[in-house]
Design a protein around this nucleic acid. Structure first.
Length: 496
RNA sequence: GGUCGGAUGGCCGAGUGGCUAGGCAGAGGUCUGCAAAACCUCCUACAGCGGUUCGAAUCCGCUUCCGACCUCCA
C-alpha cells in the first residue's frame, strides 16, 4: 500500500506532501521545556502530539533523528530582554544552585513523559551545554552584519534583516504592523529598533548564571539555543521543526531570522505547531492559575476535577482531537474519553489471544470491509496525523474483533490473511503509533486468584445458588473487579 | 486597538462543494438465571443574515460571539 504523507506546514499555511531532504531519513527538532518549574498539562499535550508524529514516522520506516532541547538558561522571566533568567530567579527564591533547579525539574519532566508513554528523543541537548556553539553563532551573525553590540550585549538587527528578508514569514504579519503594535517596554534604550531582540545579554555581577564571551560576562538569549543546537545536530537545513503555537510569532520567527542571518537558509522545511490546551475556554497557563499538574490529574486533587484520571486516559483524550485544534479540558469530555479508551484497550487485550476459527466460505463483503478499516488507519494518519480518524478506524475494527471474540460472528468468514492483518494493524496502531498501553496489567498471581474465585462462583451457579454467585459478583465489583459471563459459559474479569 | 484562528446535534469531536464520521449520553433489541460486557438498530447537527452554484457545514461578504498572539508561557 503506497500512500503519501501530508503535513500541514505553518510556514506556507498549506497541507503539503511530506518529502524528506534525505530519502528514508527525517530530522526533527522540537522546542522542549524550560526547566524552572513543573511541567503542566498543556506542555504535556504538545510533547504527546510530537510523540505521535515521531512514532508514526518510525512506523513508516523512517530513520528519525528527533532532537528536543532542555532550556536551562537564557529564558527570561519577564519582558524585552531586561528580565531575569527564569532558572536563575527560581534558584534565588529557593536558595539553590541553578543546576539543582534544572536537575530537579528535568528529572520530573522525564518521569512525566514516561508516565504518558512518550518515547525519549534521540538527542536532548541543553542550553548550558552549548554555550560555545551559541557564542560562535553570535559571532557569525555579527560578521554577517545582522547584529550589533552595545555595552556587553548583542542585539539582532531586525530592520536591517528585513531589507532583504521577510521577517514575518512565519507569523504572517507585516513589519510595519509589528512596529506599530509592539508595546513600548522599559529598559530597552540600548536597542536600535523596537523589534530587535537579544542574542547575548550582559550579566550583572550578582547574576547566578553567566559565562565569559568576547563581549564580556553574560548569558545567551532564549531564541539562540534552538538555532545553535538544531544546527549542530541536524545541520543548516532539516525536515521538521515543531513546538507549541505560542512559540510561532516570536520564538520561531526569531529563530528563522538567526538561521538565515548566519547560514542563509530557513532551518526547517516543515513547521508544525500544536494548539493550546484550554480550561473553560482560556489557555492553560501558569500565570492564569488554571493549569493542571500531571499528578493532580492522576489523583483528582484539583478544584476543577471531580475525579482522577489515568495517564492513558489523558493521552487518549488528547488523541481524540487533532493536534491543530484547541482542546478544552472538562470532566465530561474526559469521562467520555475514558469509557471509549477502556473499550478499545479491552479489545487490544483480548486480541492478543484471539485465534481464528476454522476457515469457512469467505464473506467477501466482510473481508473487504475489514481491509478497508485497516487501510483507514494509514489513510487517516497520512492526512496530517489525524488521530481522531484513526481512532474511528480502530473502533470499526474493534467491533469485528469483539464479535469474533464473543463468538457473535464466525471468524472463519474472512481469509487467514485478512485475520492476521486485522490483528497486526490493530496492535500496531494501538500500541506503537498511538502509544497507548493496556493499563492495570496485573501480575499472574491476581489472575490465578481470580480464576479460583470464578470457579467457586460457577459452581454455585451450576447448583442454581444465585444468591451466592451474585454475592461474589457484587462483592468483587465493590472492590473494583467486574465479572463478565460469556456465552460459552466462561467468565472474564476486568478491573473497573 | 492590530494580526490570525474558531463557532458542528444534550456533551466531546472529525469533515473543505454532492456519497450526509466516530465517541459519550439517551431509546429499543440480541445474548444472559439476573447482571455486566459485547453486538445490532434508532436519534441526522453544522452561530445568524445575505450571495455564488443545479447543489454549501464546506466558497464569498456582512453581523454576533469566543479564543490566541502582539508581554514570560508548549
Amino acid at each position: 500500500m503506497e500512500q503519501k504523507l501530508f503535513v500541514y506546514n505553518s510556514l506556507t499555511r498549506n497541507k503539503e506532501e511530506f518529502k524528506p531532504l534525505n530519502p528514508g531519513h527525517v530530522g526533527m527538532y522540537v522546542c522542549g521545556p524550560t526547566v524552572y518549574s513543573d511541567v503542566h498539562l498543556g506542555n504535556c499535550r504538545t510533547f504527546i502530539a510530537f510523540d505521535l508524529i515521531y512514532r508514526y514516522l518510525l512506523h513508516l520506516g523512517y530513520k528519525v533523528r528527533y532532537v528536543r532541547n532542555i532550556t536551562d538558561a537564557g529564558h527570561l522571566e519577564s519582558d524585552g530582554d531586561v528580565g531575569e533568567d527564569k532558572v536563575s530567579k527560581k534558584a534565588k527564591i529557593e536558595q539553590l544552585e541553578p543546576m539543582e533547579i534544572v536537575q530537579r525539574y528535568t528529572i520530573d519532566f522525564h518521569k512525566v513523559m514516561d508516565i504518558f508513554n512518550a518515547l525519549p528523543p534521540s538527542i536532548e541537548p541543553t542550553a548550558t551545554g552549548h554555550i560555545i556553539e551559541q557564542i560562535e553563532l553570535v559571532k557569525s551573525i555579527l560578521a554577517a552584519g545582522y547584529a550589533y553590540e552595545v555595552d556587553g550585549s548583542v542585539y539582532f538587527d531586525v530592520e536591517k534583516y528585513s531589507q532583504n528578508n521577510d521577517y514575518g514569514a512565519l507569523n504572517g504579519r507585516k513589519l510595519e504592523d509589528m512596529l506599530n503594535n509592539t508595546r513600548t517596554l522599559g529598559g530597552q534604550d540600548e536597542k536600535r529598533g523596537k523589534l530587535d531582540f537579544a542574542l547575548w545579554i550582559k550579566a550583572k555581577p550578582e547574576h547566578l548564571m553567566q559565562w565569559p564571551s568576547p563581549w564580556g560576562m553574560g548569558f545567551p538569549g532564549w531564541h539562540l539555543e534552538c538555532s545553535a543546537m538544531s544546527n549542530k545536530y541536524l545541520g543548516h537545513q532539516f525536515d521538521i521543526h515543531g513546538g507549541g503555537m505560542d512559540l510561532m510569532p516570536t520564538h520561531h520567527t526569531n529563530e528563522i531570522a538567526q538561521n538565515i542571518a548566519c547560514c542563509g537558509k530557513t532551518p526547517a522545511n516543515y513547521w508544525i505547531h500544536t494548539n493550546m490546551l484550554t480550561t473553560n475556554g482560556q489557555k492553560m497557563s501558569k500565570s492564569l492559575g488554571n493549569s493542571f499538574l500531571p499528578h493532580e490529574l492522576f489523583t483528582g486533587e484539583h478544584a476543577l476535577l471531580k475525579k482522577g484520571y489515568s495517564p492513558m486516559v489523558i493521552r487518549f483524550f488528547f488523541l481524540q482531537a487533532s493536534y491543530r485544534s484547541t482542546v478544552d479540558f472538562s470532566n465530561d469530555a474526559i469521562d467520555a474519553a475514558e469509557i471509549f479508551y477502556k473499550k478499545l484497550s479491552e479489545t487490544a487485550r483480548k486480541l492478543a489471544s484471539l485465534q481464528q476459527n476454522a476457515l469457512t466460505a469467505v464473506d467477501e463483503e466482510t473481508d473487504k470491509g475489514i481491509n478497508t478499516f485497516c487501510d483507514d488507519c494509514y489513510y487517516s494518519m497520512n492526512d496530517n496525523f489525524n488521530s481522531p480518524k484513526t481512532l474511528e478506524a480502530l473502533n470499526n475494527l474493534s467491533k469485528w474483533i469483539n464479535s469474533y471474540a464473543a463468538s457473535i460472528r464466525n471468524s472463519g468468514e474472512i481469509t487467514a490473511q485478512t485475520f492476521e492483518r486485522m490483528k497486526k494493524t490493530y496492535t500496531d496502531f494501538f500500541f506503537d503509533v498511538l502509544g497507548l498501553k493496556v493499563e492495570d496489567s496485573d501480575s499472574g498471581d491476581t489472575d490465578e486468584l481470580m480464576q479460583l474465585i470464578i470457579k467457586l462462583r460457577n459452581e454455585a451457579k451450576a447448583g442454581k445458588d444465585y444468591a451466592t454467585s451474585d454475592k461474589i459478583r457484587e462483592g468483587l465489583k465493590s472492590i473494583g473487579f467486574q465479572l463478565n459471563d460469556k456465552k460459552q459459559g466462561t467468565t472474564d474479569w476486568v478491573r473497573v
